[in-house]
Amino acid sequence: MTITESQQAGTTSLTTPTTKAQQAWPETGQQTTEPPRTDAGGRVTEGAPAKRRRRIPSIGLILAWAIVAAALLWVVAPGLFTAYDPISGVAAEKLQAPSIAHLFGTDALGRDLFARVVHGAVHSLSGAFIAVAVGLVAGTSIGLVAGSVGGILDAVLMRVIDVLLSIPGLLLALTIIILLGFGTVNAAIAVGVGSIAAFARLSRSEVVRVRRTDYVEAAFGSGARLPIVLLRHVLPNSIAPVVALAALQFGVAILAISTLGFLGYGAPPPTPEWGLLIAEGRNYVATSWWLTTFPGIVVVLVVLATNRISQWIGGERA
């Protein structure tokens, strides 16, 4: 495969191809001037200079943080949001439409759907957290080593990453699930392995960029060794886009884990995992629309929110 910047863009689906950035920012000739970072959130930047960007966070961003905060609170203290039990229901109250008593309605076993969504947050979000951790640690290590050592090791590692990229993410995840077996943690690890390639590529390109800067040359010149330079100079200066990608991958992982849950490879029933909730509601599509609609909307909102935050980390804050 030809390694192009846009290939990287395709795999993360969102990273800005450099074409625009390169053309809109003519070379200034100064090494120290930081080139514009790729906008990991995936919105078209208007080409306006960074200085003109608003200092006050937009409503969308505040909303995004609010949604993520709410989801995190669901993880930490689900009892604050709902008094109903997510596992055992009241048979007499089965398949009730949404009302004041049951915000999202009830399912076939009379369980409060809102309670199940709230209690399910811990499964979906911790799964996404594990997935991102796997991808971040493994991918960034590979990228850091490849970018800083260079030479044959770099070439070999990046070819391996190319191979991972040529296998569609879901198929790679499913292969790993065959290997590890079903379950929430296994599904999370499988999703995480799928994101290693994206992290490795981004962190390698960042390391290669930072390595060329004057201050790294200066650090080497004043006698620092490679590990120290990596830790003190390269890592802090190349971490921001990686963090943005991590935030983005968090949303991607929530989607992927819910997909695996839907296919039945994640947590077993009656776990209220979000994908599984939608899968269970599927049998009642004709009569009880709320069973699939509400959990789906929650997933979309959380993913949109993490994408918005990723975009903010990656570009707008600077």
Binding site: G41, R43, T259, F262, G275, I278, R282, G296, V299
Partner: peptide, 21 residues
């Protein structure tokens, strides 16, 4: 311009079920 960001945030399986519905 907001449409693509929304599109990638929708779980595919949910979209399918929603369309059937």
């Amino acid at each position: 311009l907001a449409v693509p960001s929304l599109f990638i945030s929708i779980p595919t399986f949910w979209l399918g079920i929603l369309l059937i519905q």
